[in-house]
């Protein structure tokens, strides 16, 4: 492969990994727990900024052309891990404000407002993360280990490894009793509460957990592309991830991989080959128009996405059937069907 081809392929693979992590995180909140987190991109951003300022040297370096806090020059895995922790801490604080028992659309509004506050603060507080210009020249981690030609592949490997590790955690959550309880709170909050589940606490937990993943995804991205600014995390970026989750299959970890592949990756890459026509920026604007139409189309025709959430069936334990005239397997419904939302 030519050098530029390697660069192209590896960049797409890293972006795919980052988007998959983001989609899993968003799906845990939206698809599993029923939290519409319009501030999602803020958690990805805080992870990215944290990793950036921990990887960069002191603010006075490089002729002091950018100003930021910390600048600790920490070695590879630490900035990414700390990014997850910082995103989790922020999620805890935001969750305390936004995740109380408010109507779902109210929660979404509060998140939207918080996301905008964050952009304003980071843009105006110049000493924090270099204001609107953002951070640049973030050193490549692990670049001393391999030749410069092999580096992109090394990073693809790192991204893949992190995806696998995160998947193990995500799968563990969604397939456990915890995941089942969260789906119950999503489908019928009052019933879940009546059964003694602490809805607010459970949601706060999943909010913190999944936004840690969002932070890690942002960190992975920034360590690869080496730059990060407020322009890359306007709140509409959350909408791309949201669309990916809806298209792929809300509530399904495999489905949202499909969504990540189709919406941010295939869609953005496919339009890259459209020759520019009209005035500059027209293609970009039309791309947003199409993304804006995509989510409602799926909500109308395929509200459960390309790979829908699996119907969960539970076998009735044999002991309960002894002496009862019940058939061995009860007709099971997904909770969505039980609510009459499906066909």
């Amino acid at each position: 492969m030519s050098q530029s081809m390697v660069y192209y392929v590896t960049t797409i693979l890293v972006y795919l990994g980052v988007d998959i992590l983001a989609c899993w995180s968003f799906n845990l909140q939206y698809g599993v727990a029923g939290i519409l987190n319009f501030a999602f991109i803020m958690f990805q951003a805080v992870g990215a900024y944290t990793a950036a300022v921990l990887t960069l040297g002191p603010s006075s370096g490089n002729g002091g052309f950018q100003h930021y806090i910390l600048g600790w020059t920490l070695p590879f895995p630490i900035p990414i891990l700390v990014a997850g922790v910082v995103a989790a801490a922020l999620a805890y604080v935001v969750g305390l404000i936004a995740l109380r028992r408010l109507r779902a659309d109210y929660q979404a509004m509060v998140m939207l407002v918080i996301s905008v506050i964050a952009t304003l603060v980071v843009t105006n507080e110049l000493g924090l993360f270099n204001g609107p210009a953002g951070l640049a020249l973030i050193p490549e981690p692990l670049s001393s280990l391999v030749s410069s030609g092999g580096y992109p592949w090394l990073y693809v490997g790192v991204t893949a490894a992190i995806c696998v590790i995160v998947y193990l955690f995500v799968h563990r959550v969604t397939s456990s009793p915890l995941g089942r309880t969260l789906r119950a709170t999503r489908d019928n909050q009052d019933a879940a509460q009546a059964l003694g589940k602490d809805v607010v606490k459970l949601r706060l937990f999943i909010f913190v957990f999944s936004n840690a993943i969002a932070g890690i995804s942002g960190a992975l991205l920034v360590e690869f592309i080496g730059a990060w600014s407020p322009g890359s995390w306007l709140y509409v970026e959350t909408f791309v991830i949201l669309t990916a989750v809806i298209v792929g299959g809300t509530g399904n970890n495999a489905g949202v991989i499909m969504g990540a592949l189709l919406v941010p990756i295939a869609f953005n890459e496919a339009t890259r080959f459209i020759p520019p026509f009209g005035r500059p920026g027209l293609v970009d604007a039309m791309q947003w128009v199409v993304i804006g139409i995509l989510a409602p189309i799926f909500l109308w025709f395929w509200p459960r996405g390309i790979i829908p959430e699996r119907r969960r069936r539970f076998k009735v334990p044999a002991i309960l059937l002894v002496g009862s005239d019940q058939s061995p397997t009860r007709p099971e419904m997904t909770t969505a069907e039980a609510k009459g939302e499906v066909d």
Binding site: Y30, G34, L36, A104, D105, A108, V236, F239, L242, I246, W288, V289, I291, G292, I293, A295, P296, L299, P303
Partner: peptide
């Protein structure tokens, strides 16, 4: 949720 997404899409 769906309606929030529909109106947001419309705005975009």
């Amino acid at each position: 949720f769906g309606m929030v997404i529909v109106t947001l899409s419309t705005g975009i």
